[in-house]
Design a protein around this nucleic acid. Structure first.
Lengths: 129, 129
DNA sequence: AACGATTTTGACAATGGTTTTCATTGTGCA
DNA sequence: TGCACAATGAAAACCATTGTCAAAATCGTT
């Protein structure tokens, strides 16, 4: 029983976009894995704590997870239509956030940035239909 | 009974930082107002739809609301300790977000940016105790 | 003022993602 | 094999939020 976390991580690594804990759980069960929802949550938390996966909240309050392609700090450009995501590095934002914080005397600055848009494919679809 | 929304808006206008729906409800009850939690939620939604208040999600999934001081688009610098918030305008980020989106062919770009940090007062407290 | 139509309100139940509980099971070690 | 400890998972608990629906308030009309 090599920690189920491995299994969870592999599921995430095997996919592309963000997935919710519930989805991951369902998929694992579908794959025949014997795992509980509780454990999925715990694995996800551990992975997130270890910085091995990305976490972000959808607008309706659900947490979604995704394997981190690049180890470093980065943000996401998410298609609001199909959910396709692109990891983007944004040195400019990092600097801006730090500057803004410093300007007001804040320390230990962190920030969350998510960019949403309509990806080319979906834009085409929208135009067509 | 001039729409309870007025009352909710006034509570928000009378405070500084972000407050959760539950907090607002509790405060209104404490002030002697006869209002239901359901109505607070409805008022908050209506106000948010009308663009009269800011809404954002805390890390633990709770929605928090705040009277919008400036009408225009802006972001927030939030103290992770005491919740004090500063509205910041960030032309640089706007441009960056648009540029990043455009670079990948995305259109109709929107973005969410929240900067967290420890405010001077809280930093002092931390250092002291 | 009186009336009905429409909207607003709010107590309560339901929802649903997430977390906790706790007994069970697996693992490492002597 | 036996024991200590971490991991697991089923079910219950949590809790912010939303839905339901009947009562109350408001408006427009007479």
């Amino acid at each position: 029983m090599t920690s189920r976390r491995e299994a969870v991580r592999e599921i995430l690594a095997g996919g592309e976009g963000f997935r919710s804990a519930q989805d991951i759980y369902a998929q694992m069960r579908a794959n025949g894995a014997k795992i509980g929802l509780t454990t999925v949550y715990r694995a996800l938390q551990a992975l997130a704590d270890a910085g091995q996966i990305d976490v972000l909240r959808t607008d309706d309050g659900e947490s979604v997870y995704r394997a981190c392609a690049t180890g470093g700090h980065h943000h996401h450009l998410v298609c609001r239509r199909c959910g396709r995501t692109v990891e983007v590095a944004g040195p400019a934002v990092e600097r801006w956030a730090d500057a803004v914080g410093a300007e007001h005397g804040f320390t230990a600055i962190t920030h969350t940035v998510e960019v949403f848009g309509t990806c080319p494919s979906c834009a085409a679809l929208t135009a067509a239909g």
